[in-house]
Design a protein around this nucleic acid. Sequence first.
DNA 1: ATGATACCGGACTGATTTAGTCCTGTATAG
DNA 2: CTATACAGGACTAAATCAGTCCGGTATCAT
Lengths: 158, 158
Amino acid sequence: MVRLGKLTDYGLVLMTCIARAEGTPLRTARDLARESRLPLSTVSKLLKELLQSGLLMSHRGTKGGYILARDPRQISVLEIIAAIEGPMALTECSTDVTGLCSLESGCPIKSNQQIINQAIRGVLEKVTLSDLAHPLQLTPIRDAHGRIVPTIASGRIQ
Amino acid sequence: MVRLGKLTDYGLVLMTCIARAEGTPLRTARDLARESRLPLSTVSKLLKELLQSGLLMSHRGTKGGYILARDPRQISVLEIIAAIEGPMALTECSTDVTGLCSLESGCPIKSNQQIINQAIRGVLEKVTLSDLAHPLQLTPIRDAHGRIVPTIASGRIQ
DNA sequence: ATGATACCGGACTGATTTAGTCCTGTATAG
DNA sequence: CTATACAGGACTAAATCAGTCCGGTATCAT
């Protein structure tokens, strides 16, 4: 449920790879494909999308490649996901445009959608690429009832 | 992105409908279909799934219908979503079972997935059916930078 | 210059998933 | 005993997704 597409996964991996290699200035699609063990064609496609969303910068030619457009701490996971899956459009109802819905007023979905949307956006906005890049410990803390406490133990979040 | 399926939306609506009608003890699929303006066949299907997940109880026969299995405040949105979309399975990697992934150790996806998963789960677990049922005000608060602060202004969350 | 490298942009296809329908069976109330 | 309403499946059409491929353009090294 609420699953990200495979390509989005790959995208996160690629961004992580780029973020981790701080020494080399530019990473080629070929390099990243090898590193992430993904097919080159797929990697290229993803890098293009990430580029168009302004998360990467590129340089052509023999010594070309990709580089992060911003500091990893300034890139949220939400942005990366949006870059690949398109802007969050849960339903037509969730846009700001009014009058589209045939149910007019009293549509019971609208507020629900927005509540949930807002909640998820909020979380994903807080997690940055930097959080993903550093192999941080994920320690699932469980409370007395055995339920997972939604705290991420990296120290950055909450 | 990170979108819920339409059916999940409908499911949330149906649960909300049931939660809101506190007077009537049992709601039939037919009633709910009329109320939610969704086709009966779809509504039936969803109610069945919600039933099997233990979120609803049912009664057959002439005066039959559905009723919430628990207090709306005890039912999280996460449960409702999981009931319809199946248990959160972002990728095979995100299950607890090890050894499935061909990349063996050092798979860079795994931790990412779990971080994001955990974050989303955490949020959805906190939002309850009660939150959806009461037409609460959604006031998107923006901070100085124009970014949305992920606070939901119902007073219940955060 | 010129050729090799690597990004750029889009079209295209097969597979998977999703939404939605339909039908037959079983329990309950009157 | 009959109408009502849930129970449990199977089934299909449509939409989405993953992945591939190709012709084009910019850049660097020789």
